[in-house]
Computed example of a mutant assay.
Amino acid sequence: MTNSPKGKTIALDADGVLLDYSTAYAHAWAKAFGTLPALRDPDAYWPIDRWAVERLSGERLATFRAAFDEAFWSTIPAIEGAVEACHRLVDAGYRLVCISALDDAFAAARQRNLEMLGFPIADVIVTDGETGDVSPKALAVAKLRPLVFADDYLPYHRGLPAAVHKALILRAPGGSPNVGNELADTDSQHVDLCAFASWWLRRPQAR
Score class of each variant (00 low, 15 high):
residue 119 F to Y: 14
residue 65 R to H: 02
residue 82 A to K: 09
residue 108 A to W: 07
residue 92 A to D: 08
residue 205 Q to D: 11
residue 152 D to V: 11
residue 86 C to L: 09
residue 174 G to V: 12
residue 205 Q to T: 06
residue 6 K to N: 13
residue 13 D to T: 12
residue 160 L to G: 09
residue 31 K to D: 11
residue 11 A to Q: 09
residue 101 A to R: 12
residue 58 G to A: 00
residue 118 G to R: 08
residue 141 V to R: 04
residue 135 S to R: 09
residue 124 V to L: 10
residue 96 L to K: 06
residue 46 W to R: 02
residue 159 G to R: 12
residue 197 A to F: 06
residue 137 K to D: 04
residue 174 G to A: 13
residue 51 W to M: 01
residue 41 D to K: 00
residue 187 D to A: 04
residue 34 G to Q: 03
residue 84 E to L: 09
residue 140 A to K: 07
residue 87 H to N: 10
residue 193 L to A: 05
residue 124 V to G: 06
residue 143 K to P: 00
residue 130 E to N: 11
residue 131 T to K: 10
residue 80 E to F: 06
residue 201 L to R: 03
residue 186 T to L: 04
residue 10 I to V: 15
residue 2 T to D: 13
residue 22 S to W: 05
residue 63 T to R: 06
residue 77 P to M: 07
residue 29 W to L: 01
residue 127 T to N: 08
residue 120 P to I: 10
residue 118 G to N: 10
residue 90 V to N: 04
residue 27 H to I: 03
residue 146 P to S: 06
residue 178 N to H: 13
residue 124 V to Y: 08
residue 24 A to R: 05
residue 94 Y to Q: 09
residue 151 D to F: 09
residue 86 C to A: 08
residue 197 A to L: 07
residue 25 Y to D: 04
residue 45 Y to H: 02
residue 43 D to V: 00
residue 7 G to V: 13
residue 64 F to D: 00
residue 10 I to A: 07
residue 53 V to W: 00
residue 90 V to H: 03
residue 97 V to R: 06
residue 76 I to K: 08
residue 206 A to I: 02
residue 84 E to H: 11
residue 26 A to H: 03
residue 6 K to H: 14
residue 112 R to F: 10
residue 3 N to M: 09
residue 32 A to I: 02
residue 153 Y to D: 06
residue 188 S to Y: 06
residue 51 W to L: 01
residue 27 H to R: 14
residue 30 A to Y: 02
residue 111 Q to C: 09
residue 163 A to H: 15
residue 189 Q to H: 13
residue 32 A to R: 01
residue 44 A to N: 02
residue 114 L to H: 07
residue 29 W to V: 03
residue 92 A to N: 09
residue 109 A to C: 15
residue 70 E to M: 01
residue 180 G to A: 13
residue 12 L to N: 11
residue 89 L to H: 07
residue 138 A to S: 12
residue 138 A to I: 08
residue 18 L to P: 11
residue 37 P to R: 01
residue 85 A to M: 12
residue 79 I to G: 03
residue 5 P to Y: 06
residue 78 A to C: 08
residue 90 V to W: 03
residue 104 D to H: 14
residue 164 V to G: 08
residue 28 A to P: 03
residue 103 D to V: 09
residue 19 L to Y: 06
residue 164 V to H: 09
residue 3 N to T: 10
residue 43 D to G: 01
residue 31 K to I: 01
residue 13 D to N: 15
residue 194 C to H: 04
residue 188 S to G: 15
residue 190 H to I: 05
residue 1 M to E: 14
residue 140 A to R: 07
residue 107 A to V: 12
residue 20 D to C: 09
residue 141 V to C: 04
residue 75 T to G: 06
residue 56 L to F: 00
residue 126 V to M: 04
residue 86 C to Q: 06
residue 49 D to K: 02
residue 135 S to W: 10
residue 81 G to D: 12
residue 39 L to S: 02
residue 143 K to E: 15
residue 184 A to W: 07
residue 127 T to D: 05
residue 79 I to K: 11
residue 46 W to T: 00
residue 102 L to M: 14
residue 195 A to C: 08
residue 124 V to C: 11
residue 159 G to H: 13
residue 204 P to A: 05
residue 70 E to H: 12
residue 57 S to G: 02
residue 118 G to F: 11
residue 91 D to H: 13
residue 143 K to I: 05
residue 181 N to C: 11
residue 178 N to I: 12
